[in-house]
Design a protein around this nucleic acid. Structure first.
Lengths: 122, 122
DNA sequence: TACATAAGATTACAAATGTAATCAATTAGG
DNA sequence: CCTAATTGATTACATTTGTAATCTTATGTA
């Protein structure tokens, strides 16, 4: 199942608010997108068709929820990207960011901590 | 300019072989893709239209070359991906891979080296 | 009750993408 | 020279995606 860029923005809202009306989704989306309400409704319907999301009827309104686990999505999107662009090499990926000072001090500390934990686990 | 997944596979060949005929591109693409020659020619023409590649005529054949720098492409694709999926956080990205033991011993050594270099540079 | 509004359902259109076919012109081989 | 093959150019078709419009039905308000 492929989630398009626009669809992903709707998913982000649903991951953040697990049970939400169309109207509320529309309100939570970044206004800078400049989307009409109808556009969002279409995206919702496409996600329904893809079985990426579901709904529970509440009065006249539908409360939409995601059927995809966010972490699972991130994991598989990351794997795909890594494979596609870096032939699976995490270090190549990271060094790409390092090359233009995209690694903050905090990033570096996080990485060091992460590496420590990994080496501790064996 | 957006390079689609299929177009990217053609770009990969061009980045590897900087001046190459359509026939040779076709031969160098992964046979498992199962593409007909015509499919590749279409992709070549779309990349031409996008001005992602150019050609130099040589006899009856065209020698195609990439107009996009590979590193630039990788950089910008990575930035986009990081922003889109991780809100710009490199450490989130890396910890995603770490979580399922996607980091090899070699990756870890590379990362440590990288971190050392970064901290050396200040 | 009647009308307006809101919410979802269905349809629309253009461009991009995946994959391929067909056509036209030139070259190569017999 | 003639024919077949090759190479690039142009066209094709279905699906996906981006963005939106229109229709239908139910609810809410005056």
């Amino acid at each position: 199942m492929k989630i398009s860029d626009s669809e992903k923005k709707v998913m982000d809202v649903l991951w953040q608010s697990p049970s939400i009306t169309a109207k509320a989704i529309i309100r939570q989306l970044d206004p800078n997108l400049g989307w009409q309400d109808r556009t969002v409704k279409t995206l919702i319907n496409r996600l329904l068709k893809k079985n990426a999301i579901g709904f529970k009827k509440k009065g006249r309104e539908y409360l939409y929820f995601s059927k995809i686990d966010k972490e699972d999505y991130i994991k598989s999107a990351s794997d795909n990207f890594l494979q596609r662009v870096f032939n699976g090499s995490v270090s190549s990926l990271v060094s790409t960011f390092a090359k233009k000072e995209k690694l903050s001090k905090a990033d570096i500390e996080s990485l060091k901590t992460l590496i420590k934990e990994i080496e501790k686990d064996g």
